[in-house]
Design a protein around this nucleic acid. Sequence first.
DNA 1: GTGCTTATTGACTGGAAAGTCAATAAGTTA
DNA 2: TAACTTATTGACTTTCCAGTCAATAAGCAC
Lengths: 201, 201
Amino acid sequence: MKKCEKTELTISKILEAAMNEFGRNGYAGGTVNNICNAGINKGLIYHNFAGKDDIYLACLKQSSERLINYLEQQDRIENLESYLAARMDFFHNYPNEAHIFFEALLTSPHHLSDSVTPILSEFNILNEKIYNQALDSLTLRNGVSRNDALSYFHLMQVMLNGYFSSPVFQNTDLSEKIKKHEMIVPKLLDFMLYGIAKGEN
Amino acid sequence: MKKCEKTELTISKILEAAMNEFGRNGYAGGTVNNICNAGINKGLIYHNFAGKDDIYLACLKQSSERLINYLEQQDRIENLESYLAARMDFFHNYPNEAHIFFEALLTSPHHLSDSVTPILSEFNILNEKIYNQALDSLTLRNGVSRNDALSYFHLMQVMLNGYFSSPVFQNTDLSEKIKKHEMIVPKLLDFMLYGIAKGEN
DNA sequence: GTGCTTATTGACTGGAAAGTCAATAAGTTA
DNA sequence: TAACTTATTGACTTTCCAGTCAATAAGCAC
């Protein structure tokens, strides 16, 4: 095997173990030693990464890229319903990515915020784009401004991400329904859109 | 000063420092040493508490009690709008309590879940009561079941708690509006209720 | 005050964590 | 193949953290 290939393989092995560790235990709760216990030599980790923070940020970056990739591959992504459904799908199928992304979004460690912000901003830009597209195809009911609706969408995002990527959600009615493909997203979205739009959506 | 008074004062001092520490850094990120650095002797902490977990659970319990207390003191608590507004108010004014409560709700450490659950359940009971009361005074629009509406309310809760208790929220438009008392809650709630109820709410 | 209990102190321990390093194995280039 | 560079190893150091403990100070009951 070529050298560069080996290095790449090593790095991806480390990242995989790290995703598991941080996905399970979060940034503060996760340890480099645990990553080693997945069968990777410690020195090798520090040969490829500058330190714990560096590994964590790589995981966050990978989570973000996978999420955005996943979303952009979807058909009809400009449709808010398929967009949100895809997002929930992703968080449901990739719990480690979900947890890492979510923790960074809500409670990332203070000393890392400068590094975390740019990673998260790509997702924010995509969101903004989709939300504006969705708003273009809606007629808002009286008393609802475009800004109101945007705020509303942002809150919706926290709600969906947070709820469906969190442990609390496991073993709830909603979780079961989604597993059984009695998909409730359309219904929820219907409730929400019905709240701001004119007429039937 | 009386002995029992001193002990009480000591405990409340420890708790205050601990609330700061866990509120800032979360359970895994918070350390007993940092609590000591607030001017409390370490031995004294362990004289009054069994360990880090014990301190943390006391903080969580205090957060929960303060939240529930705050909510129950409100006028017209049975009204969903004032209820949610009060909740957001609380989280906004008590960021440490908010963060601790929120972390426990979403990502409490695995080994503590048995101790955390009963503390959180009081809040859940209160919620359930309010939600049902609110539903009694609403006529749901066609195709929306009572269960749907309850799920919807629960999601709303995560959304509001999560969003308004998280660092991401700081320095956002919404945050500014709330600080300036251009309270946006009624509007949000209106959107939400309009999504499930028949006619104008 | 005397004897007793409890509060308080700070130095201490053991272990686990992040991070280092010299030595070796394995590719790479000439 | 020889010289060189990079990957890999495991033992090592340092730092930090949870938790302990013997000694002292302070309230309390008589």
